[in-house]
Amino acid sequence: MTQLQGAAPLGATVVAEHGPTDPRDQRPVRGRKKVGIGKVIAWIVMVIILVITIFPFYWMLRTALSSNGALYGNSTSLLPADFSWGGFERVFGLQTVDEAIAQGGSGAKLDFWRYLLNSVVVATCVTVFQVFFSAMAAYAFSRLRWRGRNAVFGLFLLSLMVPVIFTLLPNFLLVRQLGLIDTLLGIMLPSLFMAPFAIFFLRQFFLNVPHEVEEAALVDGASKVRVFFSLIVPMSAAPIATISILTYITSWNDYFWPLMVSYTDDSRVLTVALGAFRAQSPQGGPDWAGLMAATLIAALPMIVLFALFAKRIVNSIGFTGLK
């Protein structure tokens, strides 16, 4: 590939530069001179992939709105089999035990409002504290001058390499020693203080804020603390929003850690509740309508979040390759 030599030295660093850029800024892809057979086949493959991607979401909805009895006779129609809100009613504990069992539920007490609330509390607290503390650290690593800065930052980078699994068992023991088993605080605690990735991510943006702006504020007598809160943070609102959304999604979807810590409804989050729901199958087969209703409830907030912020999330992907 000798003819490559004239190319701009872009290299592996370019991934980093794919920030919230407008996709229209990207260089245009080849002109459409010939709409050949190749292009038609390519579109067909693309559509098939999109259908595979989206179909399970639809099937979740379709099943959630069916009634269990009818699913046995009609497991293939695209519309709900014998439309019913029963699945959702069971999941939110709106049916009596007898009703639930009659409709193919397990009759076990379910209270998804509770789990939904727990998930919201955990994801919200983790996001707020983690992003705030990570932003503070990122500020110290990017805009403050102090001895040992690079060495300490190196330690944080090192922690990016520690696989999560390895910290889970000892962290469980620590949370147990603190008496926080089966509490929401116990679930949140390990991720409240920081995430190495968030620090890393925000530092890149803080480094980019022009020094002139900061110096002008300092000359005017502002303290460095004030510079952080009223200058750096507002100027980096977009990346802070991005990392917040990503943190929220990650926290919401976490399963392994909450599974270790939570034992009762007090601290059960949606993902764990789903696993438990699936495990308590009634006689005569699972309560599919209820299970899919529950699954949909767990997925819905993320789908809504995504619908609102799709562009921001999609455009941040170049960065999150580290995650």
Binding site: P56, Y255, T271, G275, T295, A298, A299, F306, K311, I313
Partner: peptide
């Protein structure tokens, strides 16, 4: 691109 990414946003459990 959003459609393609959608499955990544739901949890492994879902």
């Amino acid at each position: 691109r959003s459609l393609i990414l959608a499955p990544f946003l739901v949890s492994n459990v879902v």
